[in-house]
Amino acid sequence: MKTSPIFTSRLVLFLATLSALGAGIGGSPERASATPDPVAQRDSSKDHEAQIESLIQGWFAVLEDPNVEAKTLSGLLAEAPFELLLDGAVIHDRGALLAWASSLRSTYPQIEYRLDPIHIHAEGGDRYRVRFEFDRHALDDAGLPHVVRREHTWIVQSSTSETPVILRIEERPLIFFPGTGSQIVCY
């Protein structure tokens, strides 16, 4: 079983970010201003996007790395309620999430995720909608490669004072072969 150095470094970076964000809770004074500062708003938005990207990379890094306990995923979720629609299953509690992650790991000893660009849109308040596509390349026990292509839509809660958390993930299978989305008209 192999772990890519790239994955490991991403995971370490992600965990360090989580730790730093956690340590900073309640520590940063709020700006006392009646009118919003456009520069500060832009910077804040970039901060949120970076944190959300880190959250997403952390999620997949945990799934990829067999040396990281699956329960780490629980820390990325909102306390309650949350909803994960993964592999056709509807997951509402942490026990079911761990069972799902364990099943995935036992089915595929080696997994690699290849993420397309991540699109983040502010939904208002502290909610963000995130959409991206990815390929999951996995090897089973027999060494056969398994490939899926999927779209994820996440709803993330991200505020200035707290680490972003996942409220919802919806997964949709996509056809994965390049150029196969087109249709033809037969006459």
Partner: peptide, 30 residues
Amino acid sequence: CSLLVASSGQLINSEGQAGSEKPLPIHDDV
């Protein structure tokens, strides 16, 4: 890194196939 992984015989290329000597990938969703 690519060379190291390739030499281990576990490289999956960008088309999702594992090289000419490797089996065709299984597309689980379809």
